[in-house]
Every structure is written in C-alpha cells, then in structure tokens.
Amino acid sequence: MVKKPLTANDYPIAETQPDEVIGTRGKPLSSLTMESVINGDVSMEDLRITPQALEKQAEIATSIGRSALASNLKRASEMTRLPQSEVMAIYELLRPGRATSVRDLLDAANRVRNDYDAQLLGDFLDEAASFYNQRGLFRRRY
C-alpha cells in the first residue's frame, strides 16, 4: 500500500503521530523521557532528525505550495547520511576557488551518489560544477 503524502493537517507530526516520529536508533519520541536520559539510555544519536522525518516535512511543505523548501528538506534528508566531516568538506569545496577544476566537484558528486545514495545532492553538485565552470570560479583566491 502506498501511503498518501502528508499535508498541513498532519502537522505538527510530533503531535499527530508521535509513535511514528522515531530517532535514528529506532526510539520513538515518547521513549525519550527524563528517566531514560538519567539512566543513560538516550544518546545524541537518538536526538537526531531522521531522513524519514525530513521526507514527511517535505511532503507537508509541498502540500502547501512550498516546493523550494521541500526540495531543501529532501536534500537534507539525503544529507543525514553524510558524516559531518564530509558535509563540511564539500561545503568547503563549494566555496569560491577551493575546487581547482570541474573534476573536483564532479568527483564529489559521484562520491555522494555512490557512498551515501544521495542522488539529489549529486545532481546539485553537478550543476554547481557546470555554473562554476561558466563563471571561471576555479581560480585560486589565496
């Protein structure tokens, strides 16, 4: 059965479907109690947003005409799979003059596609490569 996309009526999901808001280690919101924190059963991982939650928020945004916001949330959904060091390394690479050729960005695009199953992010980086090339952004700045 294909689930119907969420709409504004399903918002906020923490209130309308608390049992389906589940952290990265499978804990639902309702299990994140003070007691479990004190007992050491909760880690920062349990407090991380999941790709599923971001997809849900993207569906809600789409339903009310916020497709650009939804696209960002979908990219974010993929990005949850990237480790912080990779997120920051690619951010650095996207800054002017850091990549020295189109290749650098295309490599990054392939990496996120292959290693993290991040199709949208890969496309996004491909596109950056093409515009950076057009604007001669591959010159050194320092």
Partner: peptide, 22 residues
C-alpha cells in the same frame, strides 16, 4: 558574494546541512 567567500551553491549546501541536523 565571492568576496564573502561563498556562492549561492555553498550557501544552499549549508541550508540543507542545518536541516539535516534538525
């Protein structure tokens, strides 16, 4: 933008990065 050491793509990447960390 370039003088600020960023591009629209680098900033959009950050936007997704923040969302990806909730």
């Amino acid at each position: 933008f370039i003088d600020g050491d960023d591009t629209p793509w680098s900033k959009a990447w950050l936007a997704a990065a923040y969302a990806s960390r909730g």
